[in-house]
Design a protein around this nucleic acid. Sequence first.
RNA 1: GCCGAUUUAGCUUAGCUGGUGGAGCGUGGGACUGUUAAUCCCAAGGUCGAGGGUUCGAACCCCUCAAUCGGCGCCA
Length: 443
Amino acid sequence: MVKTIFIGDVQAGKYDGQEVELMGWVKRSRGSNKIRFVVLRDSTGVIQCVVKKDAIGDESFEQVKGALIESSIKITGMINADERADGGHEMVATSIVIVGSVNPEHPFPITESAMKAADGGETEFLLDNRHLYLRTSRMTAMLQMRSTVFGAIHNYFRDLDFTEYQAPNFVAGAVEGGSTLFEVPYFGKKVYLTQSWQLYAEAAMPALERLYTIAPSFRAEKSRTRRHLTEFWHAEMEVAWATNDEIMSHGEGVVRKIAGDLLENRSTELESIGRDLELVARYADSPYPRMRYDEAIETLQGMGVDVEWGQDLDYSKEKVLTQDFDVPHFLTHYPKIAKPFYHRVDPDEDKYVLCHDLLAPEGYGEIIGGGERTWSEAELLARLDEEGTDKAAYQFYIDTRSYGGVPHGGFGLGVDRVCSWLTGADHIREVIPFPRDSRRVSP
RNA sequence: GCCGAUUUAGCUUAGCUGGUGGAGCGUGGGACUGUUAAUCCCAAGGUCGAGGGUUCGAACCCCUCAAUCGGCGCCA
């Protein structure tokens, strides 16, 4: 039972005048006791199938009447262009087989009212029924666009001869300074779920020179915002011999490629969820300006925001700063005191580090964080001491500097955040099939 | 960790100053040969989140708890 005919191709006119068999799910069914209109959906679209009692017989007609929403069926018939049908084509059925029926005592729970209430967002009910919500047109479009985003990232790096490289998800220590690690029992010991691929990537940097990954990262932050997940997909890269500017160019390059690929391959899906294509086109075509931290602070102070030099910029300040941006902006050269030890101190002015954040417009916040790494052994040891960090936990990391350290750097990109921003989603949960946050781990 | 809000049928909701809970969708039955979220008629479906209190009487007022949602901090 290999399916070869898809509704999208039927609606494109590839099968006009031919008798074909379609396989799919009932999206809606209406009609009288002599004629029924079954709207069939598959992964590529929907088509109206006209089922006449005269043509298929009493028994089959009764079966069709009983095929509730989301019943799976195989339906055979003639394909015609017809103005009366949504999409411009319809099937006039000659036979129908119910493959998987739906029990009327437990009808498909995702109703029009449930969708309408969510209004593109999500309700508790839809989150509880996520496994069924996935098959709605909105979630289908989101998942298809998500796939395009992942593909764009792979293609960007592979086209530049980066090597895809995997790090362990069980780790012994933290990457970030914070205490946002998930603890996992491990044969009588405690280990943690990784927050980042970075430290292990730096270990492989002298071997591979240009490397990247797309992998889940885990953060035990009790954040309740539309930008946070506890399990998120992290696209990270590391490059030997690279400067902060070069790394930023890759960040800009990959994000613009993602926007471009979405525009090229998923414009139908973007429009179906109400996204303005001109915005996405601007993100694909425009250069992303670079602004130093000091300039951002001055700008904010000029706007009357209460902020002092040396503070990291939290979301409330990012939001004020980015509200007038029409494309993503890089923020560079943060104060050393605001960033962890692995950021390289600016040799020209040692109160800064050579790092960058990429801030998305429209209130979506930080989508990339990266920069040059502290690469000389002496500097790394000094920075760890300054922070009072226990060096024992980072011995393998220090070792990578002890044998031919070189300047290098990289960044981490929040893939779900990028999906959320580029699709214009109301919440990051909308772009991942089974979102995990501090309150929800099921379904 | 902090702040705010919500909880009534499978779903979405109305419910006034406390006086025996209404509707739409969905489901079941009926009518209808071109419907577009089809339409029309009928029916079933509710210990009003849980527990306690006030009261002659509580979905409504008070207390405790729970679940969920939104926001902040932190970050991608």
